[in-house]
Amino acid sequence: MITAEHKREYYQALVEKKSEYEGLFYVGVKTTGVFCRPTCPARKPKFENCEFYETAKEALLASFRPCKRCRPLSHPNQVSEVVRLLVEAIEKSPEKRWRERDFQSLSIDASTARRQFKKRFGMTFVEYARARRMGLAIKQIREGEHVIDAQLSAGYESGSGFREAFSRMVGSAPSQLGNGKVLKAAWLDTRLGPMIAIADDEGLYLLEFVDRRGLEREMERLRQRTKCAIIPGTAEPIQRIEQELSQYFDGEFKGFKTPVHYLGTPFQTSVWDELRKIPPGETRSYAELAVSVGKPSAFRAVAQANGMNQLAIIVPCHRVINSNGGRGGYGGGLTRKQWLINHEKQIHRQGRHYKKQD
């Protein structure tokens, strides 16, 4: 049930195109007959011409048709056809150095590719392709191939140019790589907006909403602590968490089994372990969490450890609230936090219902 207060809040989010409200509501515009997502770029309707719905299905049943600009039936920031074609082309020939004629052969404008890649990945197409080539070179060097062979495979005729590009991305010269690890970063679309996942072959280091405050600092801190480059790509833990997130948002949650890496102090690690013990559908206060880690007076330190968590949803810091029942803080946005809590309560209730039927 969307209250009058929620309607005013949602309308303000619509006017400001707040991405943290993605998936939380849809707006039907009575004057046009279409319904949109919160970040739709179209001209904003008057408040009195808006009807708000919790799901796209409700808007469809109310006879609204999906907006052609924001495509509310697709994932937020769903990959465009241009991006999809170019990513496929890169994966077919990751060592390729792209020229203007290569875009022309695909009937794609180079400036369009640059703009859409920047929006999607935070880097231009050329930067993405270069990172992919460098990732290939890093893999070859780690597998014992000569640096000169990796250099040529990455499309660099000049050894100095290759070393400079390599050092800028990885932080060391190719000859010093040895068995150093490289982390892969992938974009995951979810019902609540896009997330970024960063992992090696063994486990996940980071899972955050793309619009999270301070995400750039988190990634830089991750680079420094692991002494690893972060390049576009995927790994088994990323594929696994993508599948588990899909189940989670579909209400088929069976627990997160994706292996993770903690990068924190022993105290922070103990807080994160306790967070994972909070059952879905339940919440704890910061004070209660402090008691559970054996530091009853350290609720402020517990709150700080909560904020340092880099594994959103998996380590469920959204399940921690203030002692007075207030929502407290959440890096992904308080509206997302409330949605996650309500979603898990609903899953929990359904689980009980099915158990009784069995």
Rank of each mutant, 00 (worst) to 15 (best):
Q12T: 10
A13H: 04
V15E: 12
K18D: 14
S19R: 04
E20K: 14
G23F: 06
Y26M: 03
V34D: 09
K46C: 00
Y53V: 03
T55V: 13
T55P: 00
A62R: 09
F64E: 06
C67V: 08
R71T: 13
Q78F: 04
V82S: 11
V87P: 04
R97D: 00
E100V: 00
Q104F: 03
S105C: 12
L106Q: 14
R115E: 08
Y128F: 11
R133Q: 01
G135R: 04
Q140G: 10
R142A: 02
H146G: 10
I148K: 13
G161R: 07
N179S: 13
A185S: 14
W187M: 11
D201T: 15
L222Y: 13
T226F: 09
A229C: 08
I231W: 05
G233Q: 05
G233P: 08
A235P: 04
P237L: 10
R276M: 14
G281Y: 06
G281R: 07
Y286E: 01
K295Q: 11
A301G: 04
A305D: 06
N306K: 15
H318Y: 15
S323A: 11
G325W: 08
G326M: 03
Y330G: 07
R336C: 01
Q350N: 13
H353L: 15
K355Y: 02
K356H: 10
